[in-house]
Amino acid sequence: MTVTSTDSGRIVRPTSLEEAIAASTERPDARILGGGTLVVAERSLGIDIPPAYLLLSGIAELRGVTSDGATATGGAARIGAQTTLRALLDAALSPMLDVALRSLATPQIRHRATVGGNIAERRPAHTLAPCLLALDASVGSAGPEGSRRRSIRDFAAEGLGAGEILVDVALPARGGFQRFVRVAPRNGPGYAIASVAVSIDPTARSVRSGIGGSGPTALPGTAADDFLAGAVDWESGAVPAGAAEEYGRLLADACDPPTDDRASAGYRRHAIAVMGRRLIEAWNEEQQRG
């Protein structure tokens, strides 16, 4: 086991959430490190050279997935912020998360990278936030002012406050259709150029989506979701003609995509519209197959 000496204030490894909040407040220049796969790479690249690191790996209460035992059929779950992406994959909570986790990183990265690290900084290219928006998750955090729990929509808009640590993500029970699709430079792991996650729960008559890579943070497709929830005949499950295309159009309207070295804003908007339409068509086909 690594025993880090306490004679340097540059590596801080608290063993409780309270210690972590105190350390984060005392040492605001310390970069918080979940698994390090992004933070350490950014040091190697010269992007961020922090004078200290605050390691979350010693806080047992932040690790692990607990679920009500019915996850494969849409049961509720709590995911600690320090849960590795591999542990989340192994928990088999959702077919959407299965695809997202297998496409977002390599096996080596999945063994180290954490759920908290993937969402805490609200980077638009990161994969989990769109999925969590579609799964209607909530985010727990704790800071000097106390603990709070917010919808992932509010978290995506606001982020963490000063000295605040991400604690967990809670998934409500949610059944039905759950799928994640992306366009990316290649089929292998890596950041998507643009992505869409959609979850349709016919029992709850609820449509939820998340859009990745096409705004300053992951974005909810609220207008598209409200449109579809109102357009579908929930008794029969029938999707009216043209509704899938309109859904995609409304998702694209919700975007604020950047133009960068990977794709233009126009490409991203088009891709979001096409992915949104195809997802609803896929749900429709799945229902007709039974």
Partner: peptide
Amino acid sequence: LLDGRPINSCVALAADVDG
């Protein structure tokens, strides 16, 4: 391998390796 699991040693801080 860290406890039998493959990791990228280039993005693991030595101070954060437990196993």
